[in-house]
């Protein structure tokens, strides 16, 4: 394993120092491993707190700043943050107007945020993001996973909170956006968790994994490696089959898993767009890049959000974070 690290045990602490010195929009609480806005939001503004396992950067710390998150908790690699971190983040971010927790639907994240919400004195609402259509039989599993769609929820809810929307309304909005968002991902290679030192799963040269999550967990199925046009169909079809994206504007996110060159993501977005146009899906906004990653995994995911006009307005509002920035 060759990685730009000092040792597997110090990756997260070292990276938080890097975030601190490189991003003047945020400050870092190293004790609790939380990243906070340097300029706290005005009193009376709902706070947005998220977090999760590390290894998905820029999610979540890279989305702390004006127009998006107020605080992000960094867990161990691919492991949920702990309740004491979450309580510290809520207490630091809450302005008195309440806090919305944005949680990806993984068992550990759900339980830790639930306990954090119970232990804080602040008024808290929670939105669970479960956009991954790859999990088919959600009745008999922990349910669909929260993946790249999380950043769309964070962007739109963040803009609403910035405008002064109340806690219950921001929570309803975030839940509605989450419920209108679907994703599907694939991997060309596994990722290598530093502490493990070797790839999480073996994927032969001529095969690819379809329907992956963002922690190197196995996907829906494996099949022979093929070209971008075919892969695009494998991702777009299950998303379109799961929710009606017709008669509405749609936000499209083609997300890299961390180890995919941007030029390949452009190839993918061209193919995805062609398929969506052929299916009469109206792409109103399109975002391409590595936003919700899985360490060094090569691969990508496709996310669609069925967006109401008001959501598009909020999506277009200024955002000023290390990971996403426009209009500011």
């Amino acid at each position: 394993m060759k990685k730009l690290i000092n040792s597997p045990g110090t990756v997260i602490a070292d990276a938080l120092r890097g975030i601190e010195v490189s991003d003047n929009r945020v400050r870092v609480d190293h004790t609790h491993r939380i990243v906070l806005r340097k300029e706290p939001k005005a009193d009376g503004k709902v706070a947005l707190v998220s977090g999760g396992g590390s290894g998905h950067e820029p999610l979540h710390a890279g989305f702390v700043g004006e127009g998006m998150l107020d605080a992000a908790c960094a867990g161990e690699m691919f492991t949920s943050p702990t309740p004491d971190q979450i309580v510290a983040a809520i207490d630091a971010a809450d302005t008195g107007a309440g806090t919305l927790l944005i949680v990806k639907n993984y068992t550990g994240d759900v339980m830790n945020f639930e306990m954090g919400a119970e232990l804080t004195g602040a008024q808290v609402r929670t939105v669970l993001v479960a956009d991954d259509v790859a999990v088919e039989d959600s009745t008999f599993t922990a349910g669909r996973r929260g993946v790249a769609g999380t950043m769309i929820v964070e962007k739109i809810a963040g803009a609403a909170a910035e405008e002064g929307m109340g806690l219950d309304d921001v929570a309803s909005l975030a839940r509605a956006v989450a419920a209108s968002t679907r994703s599907m991902g694939m991997a060309l290679t596994s990722c290598t968790v530093p502490a493990a030192g070797r790839p999480t799963f073996d994927l032969p040269e001529h095969e690819m994994e379809i329907g992956i999550g963002i922690h190197g967990e196995p996907g829906r199925h494996r099949e022979p490696f093929t070209d971008a046009a075919h892969i695009a169909r494998q991702l777009v079809e299950p998303v379109l089959a799961d929710l009606n994206f017709g008669d509405s504007d749609v936000i499209l996110l083609v997300n890299g898993m961390g180890g995919t060159p941007l030029i390949e993501l452009y190839v993918m977005v061209a193919e995805v767009t062609a398929l969506l146009e052929a299916a009469d899906v109206r792409i109103a906004r399109c975002l391409v890049g590595n936003y919700v990653t899985s360490l060094d995994m090569a691969g990508c995911s496709v996310t669609l959000t069925r967006a109401e006009p008001e959501w598009l307005r909020l999506y277009d509002e200024p955002v000023n974070t290390a990971g996403l920035r426009w209009g500011a």
Partner: peptide
């Protein structure tokens, strides 16, 4: 357990 374990085992054993 709550503050050092994380994941699912932390909150479960913590509880």
């Amino acid at each position: 357990m709550l503050s050092k374990v994380g994941g699912t085992s932390g909150p479960l054993y913590g509880t």
